[in-house]
Amino acid sequence: MIPLSAYLSVSLFLFLTGLVGIIIRQSPVVMFMCIEMMLNAVNLSFVSFARYAPWVASGDITQTASQWMTGEITVLFVMAVAAAEVAVGLGMIMSIYKNEPDVNVDALSNLKG
């Protein structure tokens, strides 16, 4: 039997790896990938919570679907948002790279105070 904590710890590990990745990497594309990974990590925890929710095994699908599908639906929405985010984000990265062929995120500090 796989405990819930196992899934959650995988999720947590991936999330923190993504976080560290964002902080230490300098290429915007890789940072973006790290963000995606963090989103995925959170998604994983959503799905596992949905599966492990104690009310999963009660009642039939049509009546209680909206109760126990909440986690999975949230994941779907996260995916939709991530898709939109990637479309816009990659567009931004494209335009950044068009101006500067070799981009270091640290150099993109035009807005500093």
């Binding site: 976080l19 300098q26 995120v105 993109l108 500090s109 807005l111 500093k112 105070g113």
Partner: peptide, 21 residues
């Protein structure tokens, strides 16, 4: 206030994320 807080506004995204975490 801006003078006081501008130290944190250094335009470095990674720094922001670091502070955020």
């Amino acid at each position: 206030c801006g003078e006081m807080t501008r130290f944190f506004q250094n335009g470095n995204i990674r720094f922001y994320i670091f502070m955020m975490s």
